[in-house]
Design a binder for these strands. Structure first.
Lengths: 219, 219, 219, 219
DNA sequence: AATGAATGAGGCTTCATTCAT
DNA sequence: GATGAATGAAGCCTCATTCAT
């Protein structure tokens, strides 16, 4: 069996376990068991749980890297799409966002990688919204400072919306993410032009649920 | 030595440890050591770590209960005060909010208690804002539905703002909380009257940091 | 509350617990709980579990002492009665007989007391059977040696019959004891006279189940 | 080191300890120590003490399985041999028979395995005695029902004879087992033919003590 | 690459016991 | 007589880790 494939199986197994409990409550033992390999072998591939988490982060980063490589054209549909794929990514790796501070506290390198990626991604999003403004969807007098602050709140919302909702709701689905998107829309409404307000899609249900679809879509 | 005192020492020690690592990473051993008592005695008072967490939640709940008993008069200063004391509570018990989903997943009773308290508290806040509207600070055409949605976002912000910021910022202080408050203000701005917009305090630095001060203040 | 009463409650609770698990698996803790007193208080009355077991033995011994004080007249009904009350005693204190060797290994004094009581009791029984022979129920050529050996086997049967049966049977009741008695009868049959064989009661069901009845009955 | 060898050493050590105290009083710790391995390794091979007991039962069962595979020819010497090897087996695994009910109460699977094996073995013995009757050693009018009841008593005797004797006797040796055998002989005497009575060996001392000898001997 | 055996540390928990009240 | 607080030992178990194969 190839190294790649084994590592992949380990990550899959670990992700599923982390998402249901918490990283601290999942032992390497159980990951090995779930991955169908021996403890010794798990150790051969990943010396510690930290390394597994880091490699799961690599997956997240890789996916977001794809997004950066294929920037979306500035349409309102794409704004919705961006939100949706972000929610979905966060949901798939929810353990990461639910334990964010704990994980970053534990691993300095991870913290560095995470914040760097966040900044890079924020810049991408900033550019997208500037273009959205130029295209006449946002008010022309929106200052960079204002815009950045708006993005920051939406960021907070997208990072923690699912955690927030999960406290009370049993099921997380497309509807939950739609609600989160509506919150973000509401945040941007005061700075949208009439044309923007009219065109914003309020449902995400039309969009494909297959995450791989998200990477290439452009207008 | 009285039970109360010992229990209190345990909770203090546990809180401090939980806030720096994560509940799973802190052993009962270390809590006992930090509290200056024996392992056996720790177990005598708290059968499990779950019980400690639950009792720490009792503290949170008790503090919020005080707030409910002494409702604030509807002024803009009090709106700021409410946000500040909320941030401060969350910061003091930050481990709780940073691991929220994990903790609630682990303990069903805690989940019930938490959601019930949240609903109760949300209702209090709703009443406060309604009074704020009646007092002429919020636009009179603000619907209950709109108001509730606004409160929901601010809630998300206050629950997770510090977690969000902590990723990048080393130090959490009054300034951090002020920034959080500004976010909330920004959320409410679109529905504020001119009188409301003018009167909103943008700095929290004037307010005392002593949390006990927060309970009685009214206009 | 009087010492006597508390001690009695402790013994009752301990007996019930011992009978369902095993002495080693029952902690003083659980005995205290079942008796409805504090651990400290249990300790006040019984310094160790050994002492509790010894005091339970005292109860057994006391009950058998009553038997000695009121010897039965040599009838076949009384032979059945003796067996029955013996089975019942053993069943009530079954933990004792099921762990016999372990318990005696642990406590030298208990071993001494137990063997002494057994010898005393065996002598009583021997006398009873000699009278039974004199009364014409057993063959007159039965030697003391033979008789003693027969008693020994019956002893073994009564000590361990219930343990033996319990392995496979869920319920132990009067029928089970009846079966045990039949075994004993079978053992004695070869040395019984025709009159003895004819008169032996094969059912114990006619006898009262109230153990206190057993102490005074005599022809 | 091979698994087999280590497991074997664990079983040897556990058996010796169990036989002197009781299973509950022997900690995994002490077993590991006696086996000369680490606690962790002990747990690697046996997850719990229950499993050790079960594996010791496997040994008993295996040994009895050998007996079944090599049925003895129906001679009086072999009847004695069967009793002797049974006593010896019980003595070697005496902890098992001394705690029988407790152990079976604890482990349902063990109970099932034990009763199944007992029934199988009883059937073997029944066949042997039937052959003994056919060979003219037992009275031809002996009914199956009578025979089964006799076997049942002897079974009780062989299971518990050593427990019974051990209460008073310090040393258990070939003589003790001989006494037990005599009891059994006495049980069967009433149904033996004259030829049977004359031929029965009253001493077991002539038989080799090496248990491996017992498996093949046939007339 | 992979496995299974082995180790020792450390976690949780129960327990017997002591002691002040 | 009785209680509750406290201790420390010891039990069981899980775990990360190492290593020979």
């Amino acid at each position: 069996m190839g190294t790649r494939e084994t590592k992949s199986r380990i990550l899959d197994a670990a992700l599923e376990l982390f998402n249901t409990s918490s990283t601290s409550d999942i032992s390497a033992n159980r990951v090995a068991e779930a991955a169908g390999i021996s403890r010794g072998n798990l150790h051969y591939h990943y010396a510690s749980k930290e390394e597994i988490v880091l490699d799961l982060w690599n997956r997240i980063e890789a996916e977001m890297g794809e997004w950066s490589k294929n920037p979306m054209s500035p349409t309102l549909e794409n704004m919705a799409l961006m939100a949706l794929r972000q929610f979905r990514l966060i949901w798939r790796y929810r353990f990461f966002y639910q334990e964010l501070n704990v994980l970053l506290e534990r691993d300095t390198e991870l913290r560095y990688r995470f914040t760097r990626a966040r900044q890079k991604r924020m810049e991408d999003v900033f550019v997208f919204f500037r273009q959205l403004a130029n295209a006449g969807f946002l008010r022309s007098d929106l200052s960079d400072r204002q815009l950045r602050r708006l993005i920051k709140i939406s960021w907070l919302v997208s990072d923690f919306w699912l955690s927030f909702v999960r406290v009370e709701d049993e099921v997380i689905d497309i509807g939950t993410m739609e609600d989160g998107f509506k919150l973000i829309v509401q945040l941007f409404e005061p700075v949208m032009t009439d044309r923007g307000k009219r065109g914003i899609p309020l449902s995400l249900r039309a969009f494909s649920l297959d995450p791989t679809d998200f990477t290439q879509r452009s207008a």
